[in-house]
Each structure stands twice: as C-alpha cells, then as structure tokens.
Amino acid sequence: MTTSSAASATTAPSAVLPRGPGPGVGSDFARLSRRIDEAGLLRRRPGYYTVRLALVTGLLAGGWAAFLALGDTWWQLAVAVFMALVFGQVALVAHDLAHRQVFRQRRPSAACGRLFGNLGIGMSYGWWMNKHTRHHANPNHEQLDPDVAPDILVWSTEQARDSGGLARFIGGHQAFLFFPLLTLEGFNLHVASVRALLSPSMKSRWLEGGLLFLHLSAYLSVLFLVLSPGKAIAFLTVHQCLFGVYLGSIFAPNHKGMPTFSGDDRPDFLRRQVLTSRNVRGGRVTDLMLGGLNYQIEHHLFPSMPSPHLRRARVVVRAYCEEIGVPYHETGLIRSYREALAHLHRVGEPIRRQRKSAPGQ
C-alpha cells in the first residue's frame, strides 16, 4: 500500500456518483446513509437555490453594468477584483448544478450548468464534469484521480522520483510556487475547455463550443471596446489571475496533503472518501466564500446533498466516524493551507536530493 499521510497526522457532468463498491445493506456507508436520510438532509432546497442563483446572476450582471458605466479608467481594476470573486461564485453554482444538488434531472442541471459555466465564465461544463466525476470516484488515487496526476506538480514521493519535464523542474520548490502558479489557473481553465472540444468523448460539442465562443468573444470585445489596450490587458490580467487564485484557494484545502492511494489500494466507499478529505472549520462567511466545500467529507460522501445541509450533516458524519473508528480530519483554513504546502514540500524532497547529487551541482 502506498499512502502519504497528511502533515498534521491526524479534503459535475454527471457528478452524481454511484455509491461505490461495498455500500450494501449492512455496510458502514449504508448505515450512515440511512441516518442522513432520516434526518431529511438529502431533500432538495428549491427556495434556497432560487435565491442563490438569482443573487449570483445579479452580481454577474451588476459587475458588467458597473464596468460599462465606469468607462475607460484605471478604477476598472477594482471591478476586475470584484468580478474575480463573482466568477468564483458562478463556478461554485455550476459545481452544485453538476452534482444535481439543484435539480434531480440531468437535462435541467446540464442546461443551467452550461449557461453558468460555458456562457457565464468561459469554463466548459462537459469537460469539468467528466474530470470532476473521476475525481469523486477515486479521490487522491494517483492513477485514477486526474486532480493528482503529476502534470506540473507532484503529489507523492513516488511521483517525484519518476517525474520528468516541467514537474521535475518545479517539483523541488513547488510548495513556494503553489500560490503563484494559481494565478495561471483561470487561463488554464479556458484553454483546457477549448481543447476539450477536440475530444471524441465531448458530448454536445457544438453547444459547448458555441457558448464558449460567445463568452470569449463578448468578454474580449467588451474589454477592448470600452478600455484602451493597456487598461484592457491590465483588467484581463488582474481579473483572470485573481479568479484563478480564488478558485484554487477554494479547492486546495479539500484533499491536498491528505493520504494518497496507488495501484489496487482502494478502501471501501466510506473510507475512500473520508480518509482522503479534509474539512475546514469556520462560520457562515467561510461557508459562503468556499461554497460549502469546506464540508468536503460530507460532500464526498453525499455529492448530491444540497450545500446548505452540509453543516448539519457534519455533526452526524463526525459522530458516526468516531463510532466506527474512522479518522475524521478537520482544521482551520490557514492550517489547511499549511498542511497542504508542507506536504508539497515534503514529497518534493527526492527531486531536491537528486539535484544536489547530480554532477556539477
């Protein structure tokens, strides 16, 4: 078994997931699921989501209205900061839609998801859903979870030893480069979304592509028609870089630095989700800024659970994990980043060691 422990010892196309292997009538997960269902935590919240979707849509429209009203001025950089936060909130709405937290049916979920994702922020709903579904099925599995593939960063010492290319160049100092690299994440989402249109597995290719084209063409046209070229480039840079940092900061605490698995290492569904996820403590502001994903353990166990129920589900899940002896990891937001960065630094050690021992170094 290849498992990397967290630094502290002790965290949707269709992202509605099967219950996974082992959740039979008498399984640990089945017993927990019955408790959650009896508490009414799987019921839809149409009123909540009507208000939330309306507010996010209003913020998005209001941000662009403010942009048009201000005109060609450097004060537009304040709008860029505001719109970075709004884009992050739109992405969180698309996430909930993909998990069918809003609608039970696939069609309305996909239709709204493409409007908020493709048209609203220029992120392919179909591409992200495929990627995120595979992550949920096998979180932190080095061969099965695309979120821990050794692309630019390495997530385990084994990946560090076998790394090459950009991952080897960055891996030794990846903990220091992690947040600076997030400034590129917004751009990466747009590029990956366009590239995904060429994949034979992409469904509704023309619809996805058309909505992406509408977003990108309208976005760039508005920027360069209203602003001078220098201000337009500055707005685009501030907006997309901060959007990437915000989005990455939402997802980074969830699983980075938690145990990873490899090969045939696949615990039962409950343990696979709980052991690889980290909860982040906080109040209503934390819930708002992280979109409820600070309850990552509960979200991974019950991905279609409406996000406003996750806080209450935490009490049930934490007590149950204590009852059956499954470690349940929860920490504050700053501590979660420290744990993730400490893990990234630790697993990069083989690269640093090889550089020191290389001839001429």
Rank of each mutant, 00 (worst) to 15 (best):
residue 252 A to W: 07
residue 137 A to F: 00
residue 336 S to W: 01
residue 152 I to K: 06
residue 19 R to E: 12
residue 85 L to Y: 11
residue 104 R to W: 08
residue 39 A to N: 06
residue 148 V to S: 01
residue 151 D to M: 10
residue 28 D to E: 15
residue 67 F to H: 05
residue 107 R to V: 14
residue 343 H to L: 02
residue 47 G to T: 05
residue 23 P to F: 09
residue 192 A to E: 07
residue 18 P to E: 14
residue 17 L to R: 12
residue 10 T to I: 09
residue 197 L to V: 06
residue 38 E to F: 02
residue 99 H to Y: 11
residue 93 V to T: 14
residue 72 D to R: 07
residue 40 G to A: 06
residue 255 H to Y: 05
residue 90 V to R: 02
residue 191 V to H: 04
residue 262 S to D: 14
residue 294 N to M: 02
residue 33 S to E: 14
residue 138 N to M: 06
residue 287 D to R: 08
residue 328 Y to N: 08
residue 79 V to I: 15
residue 72 D to S: 04
residue 274 V to I: 14
residue 161 R to N: 01
residue 44 R to V: 05
residue 110 A to L: 08
residue 251 F to K: 01
residue 19 R to S: 12
residue 222 V to I: 15
residue 64 W to V: 10
residue 160 A to R: 00
residue 261 F to C: 03
residue 83 M to D: 11
residue 308 P to A: 05
residue 301 L to D: 05
residue 297 I to E: 07
residue 308 P to K: 10
residue 56 V to M: 12
residue 349 E to Y: 03
residue 87 F to I: 12
residue 209 G to D: 06
residue 314 R to D: 15
residue 267 P to G: 07
residue 320 Y to L: 03
residue 48 Y to V: 05
residue 120 G to D: 08
residue 187 F to Y: 12
residue 346 R to F: 11
residue 62 G to S: 10
residue 346 R to W: 15
residue 203 K to N: 11
residue 246 Y to Q: 01
residue 285 V to F: 13
residue 18 P to Q: 11
residue 26 G to Y: 09
residue 183 T to E: 00
residue 165 G to V: 14
residue 85 L to R: 02
residue 202 M to G: 00
residue 121 I to Y: 06
residue 174 Q to P: 06
residue 264 D to L: 09
residue 200 P to A: 07
residue 232 A to E: 12
residue 18 P to N: 14
residue 134 R to Y: 13
residue 56 V to E: 07
residue 129 M to S: 13
residue 262 S to E: 15
residue 201 S to Q: 13
residue 242 L to K: 05
residue 259 P to R: 06
residue 177 L to Q: 11
residue 244 G to H: 04
residue 45 R to W: 01
residue 211 L to A: 09
residue 144 L to S: 02
residue 5 S to K: 05
residue 209 G to P: 02
residue 59 L to R: 03
residue 356 K to W: 15
residue 307 S to T: 05
residue 270 L to G: 02
residue 210 G to M: 01
residue 12 A to E: 12
residue 130 N to V: 04
residue 33 S to D: 14
residue 283 G to P: 02
residue 216 L to A: 08
residue 75 W to F: 11
residue 277 S to Y: 02
residue 263 G to R: 12
residue 240 Q to K: 04
residue 185 E to M: 13
residue 23 P to H: 05
residue 145 D to Y: 08
residue 361 Q to G: 06
residue 39 A to F: 11
residue 289 M to L: 15
residue 342 A to H: 04
residue 329 H to E: 09
residue 359 P to M: 04
residue 310 L to G: 09
residue 161 R to Y: 01
residue 169 F to Q: 14
